[in-house]
Design a protein around this nucleic acid. Structure first.
Lengths: 189, 189
DNA sequence: AAAATATGTGACCAAGTGGTTACAAACTTA
DNA sequence: TAAGTTTGTAACCACTTGGTCACATATTTT
């Protein structure tokens, strides 16, 4: 039998990621990961230090909020910049399932195992919101709307619609985007 | 030994409720409920038809969205009425832990067991949002902000703060309320 | 080649899961 | 009082959970 630790570590980590992306935080367990990777679970403890270690690795090399952080480096002084930033953020959120599941996870628990991951991801989120912080009046409305966007994104995994809003149609999400844009405008008049 | 079916059913149902309120959807299991009620789990199947039956009972006599529905009967024509309605809604949400946990549950799964409960609670939510539906432009912004309020409420169970916003202070929630109010005003100018 | 180390497996553990079964004790009806 | 029914319990089932263990097989080092 061939032995290759690096390859095995990859198999484990990738299995963990895809399990999280597809089935969410509840499905992420030592047994499930080991089974999916086709490997003995002992190796997860040996190479990563258990689930906690895997989450730490995700925190370090996690590519959530990727496009938003790229935008963050730019100078965001004008209202148009903020609107563009919001738009990029909502798009990233909807496309990045990993980010979604981490945000979902934060609604479920907060303990030793998840601490490192949440600490890191919240730091990234903080960087982004620092931008809208300049206008304190707009800030809370902005936070609420982004929070709402997160909420509906997470909700859409199990629900096709919220009230009359079809969560599967691109149009609905466009309308949400427009609502954010319009609110930013109204607050700046 | 004294035998009293009605009292036993109450013990089971109350244990289920307090378990859900205090520890959330993940903690609600047949064994945990039976243990908390100090009763054999067989009785849960016999009297309620398992967890699914308990959720059905909650759907029927559940008192979530209580104050909001009372308000719903009033005529909500003016902008001031909508603002008052939003304020009552956010307050109800913050106070009613049962409502919170049901909303959290909807972010975790949607299957045979939970179907009836979610169907009913969503019907109630729909009633409330029918109000803001009159103004389509405001509608999406309103939905986002209420969704954000739900998001931060659920988040506050495990997180003391979101970015710089202290989720434990009354002031923060007042600021969110004000942001909603102001947005409604701006959209109606 | 021999010894030491790194890698991997499968069995095992105690505890918990949802669900069922057999049976006892209490209450009701005849 | 005797028979039937309702209420309640505890043991048991197969299965899953996170975690550890002894052991075997590669791969390196001496």
């Amino acid at each position: 039998m061939k032995k290759d630790r690096a390859a095995t570590e990859d198999k484990i980590y990738e299995s963990f990621l895809s399990l999280l992306e597809e089935k969410g935080p509840q499905a992420v367990g030592i047994n499930a990961i080991a089974k999916k990777a086709g490997v003995s679970k002992e190796l997860i403890y040996r190479y990563f230090g258990g689930l906690q270690g895997l989450l730490l690795q995700l925190a370090k090399k996690g590519d959530f909020f990727k496009s938003m952080l790229a935008l963050h480096d730019k100078d965001l002084a004008t209202v148009e910049d903020l609107k563009e930033f919001a738009k990029a953020g909502t798009q990233e959120l909807r496309e990045n399932k990993l980010t979604q599941e981490i945000l979902r996870w934060q609604l479920l628990e907060n303990n030793e195992v998840t601490r490192d991951l949440f600490k890191y991801s919240n730091k990234e989120i903080g960087k982004m919101f620092a931008i809208s912080d300049k206008d304190s009046s707009l800030n809370h409305a902005f936070q609420l709307m982004i929070g709402g966007y997160v909420y509906f994104t997470l909700l859409s995994k199990f629900n096709k619609k919220f009230i009359t809003t079809d969560l599967t149609s691109k149009e609905s999400w466009d309308n949400f985007d427009k609502a954010i844009e319009k609110t930013i405008d109204l607050f700046n008049k």
